[in-house]
Simulated assay, not measured.
Amino acid sequence: MTTETTAEPFHGRTLVIDSATEACSVALFENDALLAGDFRMLGRGHAEALVPMIAQLPDRGRAARIVVALGPGSFTGVRVGLAAARALALAWGSEVIGYSTLAMVSAIARDQAGAVPVATAMTGGHGEWFIEGFAKDGSVTRPLTSLRPDAAAAAVTEEVVAGTQAQALVAARGNGTALAIWPDARAFPLLPAHALTADTRPLYGRAPDAKLPGGLPGPQG
C-alpha cells in the first residue's frame, strides 16, 4: 500500500467516516476541534445507518476533506465507508484520504495507556485475528497480518494489546494488559500524520479467498 501522507496541518472542516468494523462512527471537525460526532455498535446494517448519521452532522457533514477508514475489517463495512466518502467527495469537490483501522485503535490505546508500544488484535475472517505492532510514536514495528488465535498470541510481544480481540489474546498468552477498543472517528486527532494516506484502496489483512479464471485474485475479506 502506498504510504503517501498528508503531513501539513489542515485548516478547515474534516469529515471522518469509520464503518470498517462492528462499530460505525462519524465525526466532523473544524481544524482539530470536534464539532459533532456519533458512534454506534451496529454489528450489521452499516449501509442503512451511515448516510443518516452523516446527515445529522452540522451542515450535513459537508467538509473540504473527507477521511475514511480503509480496513482491515468487514469487507462490506469497508466498502460502504469508501463508497460514501467517494460519493460525497465528488458532490462537494472534497479531498479524500484514508487510514488503517488498526492505526486508529493503536492511537486510542496510546492515549489511554501512555506513549508505549502497542499491539493491535482485531477480529478477522475465517476465525483469524488481524494483528499489527506499533511503536510509541505510532510507527509500524510489525506489519499487518492475519493469523489463527494461537499463532497471533505467540507472535505478539508488546505488553499492551488493544482491539476487539485484545482480552482473548492476553488470556491466551497469559500476560499483558488488554484494552478492548473499537475504532472511533471522534478520536481522529489522535492519529499521527504519518498514518494518513492518499491511497484509498481497501486495506486487507489476508490473502484473497479465491482466484478468478486465469489466476487473478478474487475478492478479499
Rank of each mutant, 00 (worst) to 15 (best):
P72E: 01
A47I: 13
I54K: 11
A87N: 01
P213F: 14
D111H: 15
G215W: 08
K211R: 14
E95Q: 15
I131R: 04
F29Q: 03
D59W: 06
I54F: 09
A195H: 08
Y204N: 07
A23C: 03
V116D: 00
G176P: 07
M41T: 10
G77Q: 06
G81F: 10
E48S: 14
R65I: 11
V96M: 01
A7R: 13
P208I: 13
G45S: 13
R65D: 01
L191P: 07
S139Q: 12
G37M: 02
G73M: 05
S139I: 12
P143V: 07
R110G: 04
L35W: 09
D150F: 00
G163E: 00
G71F: 03
A91H: 09
R148H: 11
S106L: 04
L90E: 02
G221Y: 11
E159F: 00
P72G: 06
G43N: 06
G73A: 08
A155E: 07
A121K: 15
A49Q: 13
R148I: 10
L179K: 01
F134V: 05
I97P: 00
G176T: 09
P192T: 06
A55Q: 11
S100P: 12
R86I: 05
L216Y: 08
L28R: 07
L15D: 01
L144M: 10
E22M: 08
G71I: 10
I97K: 00
L190G: 05
E159D: 05
L28T: 07
R44Q: 13
V80E: 00
G215M: 10
L15A: 07
A47V: 14
E4G: 06
A115D: 02
D137H: 13
A171Y: 02
V16F: 01
L216A: 15
G98Q: 14
T141V: 13
G176Y: 04
P72T: 08
A23W: 00
G71V: 10
G98D: 11
T141H: 04
A153Y: 04
S106C: 09
G43A: 08
G176C: 08
G163W: 00
R60F: 10
L28V: 09
W92E: 03
P192D: 01
S94I: 09
G43K: 09
M53R: 08
P52M: 11
D184F: 02
T76V: 12
A89R: 07
S146D: 03
Q165G: 05
G133S: 04
T197Q: 07
Q220G: 12
A103H: 09
A187E: 03
G214R: 15
A198I: 13
E95I: 15
P183T: 12
L147C: 07
A55F: 02
S19T: 11
A49R: 15
V160R: 00
T5W: 03
D38N: 07
T2G: 02
V170F: 03
T101Y: 04
A115H: 03
S25M: 12
A7M: 10
A84I: 12
T6G: 00
G61F: 11
F10G: 00
D184V: 07
G205H: 14
D38F: 01
E4V: 14
G45L: 14
G221H: 12
G43I: 12
P208M: 12
A83N: 00
A113R: 05
M1K: 09
A171F: 03
W182Q: 06
T3S: 11
F75W: 06
F130Q: 01
W129N: 09
A33T: 15
